[in-house]
């Protein structure tokens, strides 16, 4: 059967890596694209970036950060289990070319798309610098993986337990000032992408961001994923997910991401209740 989990790793209490058998997808998908996943029959459709694409082994990888019901359901799956639905590859691939110096900025699950993108950028002849951060050193993930292809991996932690003490955006600024950049790609929480874009703006460095609006189908059918870029409404799934970070209406994105906060909390409570052992 399809979508069998071949490998699972717990990277952090809230971050899970899965390698999944999906030969057709692996043949077709490109760095920067995503899939739409459903955990079970009652499940919601959620978008997840492709964290690795291995056509030779016929597998794709996903990195799941547990936030609500679906991501939590996925996190409970084990090797040998099957994921109910995986559809894709959705969206456009990230344009891979020789730009020169490419800086990747990621946090949390943002490392997922950055891994295949960074590798492809390196293969295209770019110098690749990765910047990643977390609250503290023990929460850092993917540092080693990014190191596989990066010319340099720069770290920041809020508490200074590793690398620069402070935010990834400060490291980004320092790196641009010191060595310049031809392209910055930022992926992670909207707030991080927003500030990364604000950081690169004064230096006029082209900045790509991978937007994560709420989605349903991922095929352009519902319009849930509307984002505003350069004053124009676009669909995150079919027009993106990559957009020019300097043109994105960040406040709108963040506001729309909050649409279902109340319902999500309710769903999570119902879900954890139903999973709790009966006393």
């Amino acid at each position: 059967m399809a979508n069998k989990i071949l490998e699972k790793r717990v990277l952090r209490s809230d971050l899970f890596y899965f390698r999944i058998e999906a030969p057709e997808l692996a043949k077709k998908a490109k760095a920067g694209q995503f899939v739409v996943v459903r955990a079970d029959d009652n499940g919601e459709r959620i978008p997840l970036s492709l964290a690795n694409i291995d056509p030779d082994r016929g597998t794709i990888s996903l990195l799941v950060q547990t936030i609500g019901v679906t991501s939590t359901k996925l996190s409970t799956l084990s090797v040998g289990d099957e994921i109910k639905d995986i559809a894709g590859p959705m969206g456009h691939k990230t344009p891979i070319e020789k730009y020169g110096r490419v800086i990747l900025v990621g946090g949390g699950f943002g490392a997922a798309p950055l891994y295949p993108i960074g590798r492809a950028m390196k293969e295209a002849g770019n110098t690749v610098i990765s910047i990643t951060g977390a609250r503290s050193a023990d929460l850092l993930v993917y540092e080693k993986e990014l190191g596989e292809f990066s010319d340099k991996v720069l770290i920041s932690t809020d508490d200074g337990s590793k690398g620069h003490k402070g935010l990834v955006t400060e490291v980004l600024k320092n790196e641009i000032e010191a060595n310049g950049a031809d392209l910055v790609i930022a992926v992670g929480p909207a707030i991080m992408m927003k500030f990364a874009s604000l950081t690169t703006k004064p230096y006029n460095v082209k900045t790509l961001v991978s937007l994560n609006p709420i989605m349903v189908d991922g095929t352009g059918m519902c319009g849930a994923c509307r984002v505003s870029v350069g004053g124009k409404t676009m669909f995150g799934c079919t027009d993106g997910p990559d957009f020019d970070g300097h043109l994105v209406d960040w406040d709108l994105l963040m506001s729309r991401q909050r649409t279902y906060l109340v319902e999500e909390k309710e769903a999570m409570e119902a879900y954890t209740c139903s999973c709790a052992p009966h006393s």
């Binding site: 009652n42 499940g43 919601e44 459709r45 019901v69 679906t70 349903v216 649409t259 279902y260 319902e263 999500e264 309710e266 769903a267 119902a270 879900y271």
Partner: peptide
């Protein structure tokens, strides 16, 4: 399709 009218039995919310 997603049966949001049966939320939270089904996971997809609707306002």
């Amino acid at each position: 399709l997603m049966k949001a009218y049966l939320f939270p039995e089904y996971d997809t919310p609707i306002k």
